[in-house]
Measured scan of single mutants.
Amino acid sequence: EADPRLIESLSQMLSMGFSDEGGWLTRLLQTKNYDIGAALDTIQY
């Protein structure tokens, strides 16, 4: 079963217009401990 923190973070990022095609966003959020800010910083640079 998916981590509730992942579901919450992923749904927030999907609502911002990101896609999780191929699961890349799920993996990114997992490596950033479900921190949306850290994930966005990684995507920006």
Rank of each mutant, 00 (worst) to 15 (best):
K32Q: 09
S15C: 13
G17A: 03
Y45W: 08
Q30D: 05
Q12T: 13
R27S: 09
Y45Q: 15
W24T: 04
G22D: 12
S19Y: 09
G22C: 14
D41K: 14
S15K: 13
F18P: 00
D41I: 13
A39Q: 01
S11V: 10
F18D: 01
W24F: 07
K32L: 15
L28P: 01
L29C: 01
T31P: 00
Y34W: 06
L40Y: 07
G22H: 08
L40R: 04
I36N: 02
R5H: 07
S19M: 09
S9A: 14
Q12F: 13
S19H: 12
I7H: 10
I36F: 05
S19Q: 11
S19D: 14
N33S: 08
D35C: 07
L40H: 03
R5I: 06
R27G: 07
R5L: 09
M16S: 04
G23H: 08
T42M: 11
R5P: 04
D20P: 02
M13E: 01
L25H: 00
D35M: 04
S9E: 02
R5V: 06
D3P: 07
I36H: 03
L25M: 05
Y34V: 01
P4D: 10
L25G: 00
A39L: 05
W24V: 05
L29N: 00
S19W: 07
Q30T: 12
M16F: 09
K32M: 13
K32V: 15
T42D: 15
L25Y: 00
L6D: 02
S15Y: 06
D20W: 01
A38V: 08
Y34H: 04
L28I: 07
S11D: 10
P4N: 11
T26S: 12
M13L: 09
G17K: 00
R5K: 10
L29R: 00
E8P: 08
Q12M: 12
Y45S: 15
Q12C: 13
L29S: 01
G23N: 07
S19E: 11
K32D: 03
I43W: 04
E21V: 12
L14M: 11
L28R: 00
D35L: 04
I7A: 13
Q30R: 10
S9N: 04
T31V: 12
T31M: 14
A38Y: 05
F18K: 00
M16Y: 08
Q44N: 12
T26C: 04
I7Y: 10
Y45H: 15
Q30F: 07
S11E: 13
G17P: 01
S15Q: 12
Q12P: 01
R5Y: 07
L40V: 06
A38K: 11
E1D: 14
I7S: 11
S15G: 14
M13W: 02
L28E: 02
